[in-house]
Design a protein around this nucleic acid. Structure first.
Lengths: 344, 344
DNA sequence: CTGAAAGCGCTTACAG
DNA sequence: CTGAAAGCGCTTACAG
């Protein structure tokens, strides 16, 4: 059996309650007593049993992380580890632990969340995504359980605290950058619009074209596999007027397209320009290095965790949402078109 | 206040102990009683408080994951999410939760572990790495705390259950593959030998050369950044007899070198062949697609979690270590040398 | 088959 | 400044 507060109390000749107070550094305990008790704790190798503490405090000092339904693709997307790192750094400082959902399907994840929430296993939650018709979201709102979302809520936007990029602006900025260097036929390659982030970026793309008076939108939706990269490039090659630039929304998709382009002997950026979102090592180490919109995933995670912890410590805090600015990182995957090329 | 077992008991007109037995589906409770109680649980929206259950059971049904000291590099290495996924799948099936260390430095991670272990916050641990002189390892061994290591223990190998690839063989196989297609000057680019995995792979490389009677080893150690890739390639270019193949040990390092090679207008595989370890989307989507040694990270995580859970459920189980086979995935980053080229 | 009681290891009003 | 006592919400021998 492990050593408990009682063992310490007995050996130090004080009451268990005193030991408990020493543990929390209660101001009214004399320095003398504290030292005596601490010495005994040291000798006995005492460590508080957190399970017991959690029960009486009705709190677990733990934050749960709700992952997105997994797919081959999302698994390797560098977004996840970067966000996780941001959350982890803040939570470590504030002495919270991290518990993760382990479910694979949406239904399993829902069950994980119910168990965490009702079982009091976590004090609050961070949702790593925002999507349409999410039973998890409904469940949390109904129970008024504290949580913060990374991404823009699809519904109940006035009741949810969230941390996000301005994805409409980010995609608009990126599109306008391509326009500014002479591109007029720009294709957009995004993800499933059931996720808000993809809806937003597609809209940003549209807005930029509209502002510039360009009618033609070229929109694709692919996954990050060798095959879909190839399919997409096949489609591009069959177009009578091929786009001169491709705006992709994640690094792996971008790699898959890059790879298919090379297979068809198209050069980047000479024959076609390409951009992406996120700025992990992938963009930096790619050949050519990728022009990308850095969404600062570390900061997204950090701010989300910070907001949640503040909410937990002060349940009446004023609601606030945080927008993490994005920044355009120009590298070598985009080429400025000459007058000649523009009109080709 | 949440609804407790007492509320259910009162409304169902049974004792709290009966409710508890219904919860665990105790065989001696009549079907009738079970149904009555379950109906009330439903009506009241009852969910067991896991904190209380954990306390009395002296177990948390939680597995802790000890991460490696973080670095920019390891953060984006696809190894981590893949291993995590494997563990997560198994742990979900067995109804265990996952708690992660959040510390950044070795010292912080050590504190995280002590807290998890002494605080009874986890029933067992999985170490995601193996390294020299690890105080965490010593601590766990001293306390006889159940854990499984991913990687080969540097010390105490007979007391530790571990799951690993045969990294010596994996690197030897890869080197021999390169030899078999005519390469004789092969450079090895690995990581810090304080980690066992890197020691093993370097040894495998040496062994293969030795077996083939090749004296000259060319060994580098770099990190996965643009700069170190460039530095490495600069060194290669300055060699009087440049290697015809490079064996790298992770995908990001490989990308960084690939990128530096292209910058120097060296073509892969025409001018130089290159291989890596791991087979994430990065290898598949790279241009050219990378010949790689698949270490099956998902399975490493899955088997580690499985071993740990079995150990927790049967503390007297026979010790066993698991070696997950590696498999060579041939893609387009290696070229067979002609007789001519071999003797160049 | 079910209930009353003790207990898991803490914390925290309430006394003094 | 410190102690005795109650209680957090469960589980589980022990009775009957």
């Amino acid at each position: 059996m492990a050593v408990t507060i009682k063992d310490v109390a007995k050996k130090a000749q004080v009451a268990p309650s005193t030991v408990s107070r020493v543990l929390s550094d209660h101001p009214k305990i004399t320095q003398e007593t504290k030292e005596k008790v601490r010495k005994v704790m040291e000798e006995l190798g005492y460590h508080p049993n957190l399970l017991a503490r959690n029960l009486v405090r009705q709190s677990s000092q733990t934050v749960g992380i709700i992952m997105k339904e997994s797919s081959e693709h999302s698994l390797f997307d560098p977004f996840f580890p970067a966000v996780l790192k941001g959350m982890s750094d803040l939570l470590h400082d504030r002495e919270y632990s991290i518990l993760m959902t382990t479910g694979e399907t949406n239904e399993e994840i829902y069950q994980d969340v119910v168990k965490m929430v009702q079982g009091k296993n976590v004090d609050g939650l961070i949702m790593l995504y925002s999507r349409d018709e999410d039973p998890i979201l409904e469940h949390l709102l109904k129970r008024k359980f504290p949580f913060v979302m990374i991404g823009k809520p699809a519904t109940h936007i006035d009741e949810i605290m969230y941390v996000d990029n301005d994805n409409v602006k980010a995609a608009r900025d990126m599109t306008q950058y391509l326009l500014s260097i002479g591109h007029k036929r720009i294709a957009y390659v995004g993800g499933n619009p059931k996720f808000e982030v993809h809806k937003d970026r597609e809209q940003g793309y549209r807005e930029a074209l509209q502002i510039s008076g360009i009618q033609e939108t070229i929109i694709f939706q692919t996954s990050a596999t060798r095959e879909s990269g190839k399919e997409l490039v096949d489609k591009l090659l069959k177009m009578e007027k091929r786009p001169t630039a491709i705006l992709t929304t994640d690094e792996l998709k971008c790699m898959s397209i890059l790879s298919a382009l090379y297979a068809e002997s198209l050069r980047v950026p000479d024959d076609i320009s390409i951009t992406t979102f996120m700025d992990s090592l992938i963009s930096e180490l790619s050949s050519p290095p990728l022009t990308t919109m850095d969404i600062h995933p570390f900061q997204l995670g950090y701010e989300a965790a910070k907001t949640l912890v503040e909410l937990l410590e002060n349940p009446n805090m004023m609601r606030r949402n945080i927008l993490v600015p994005t920044s355009l990182v120009k590298r070598q995957s985009c080429k400025k078109l000459t007058m000649n090329e523009e009109t080709l």
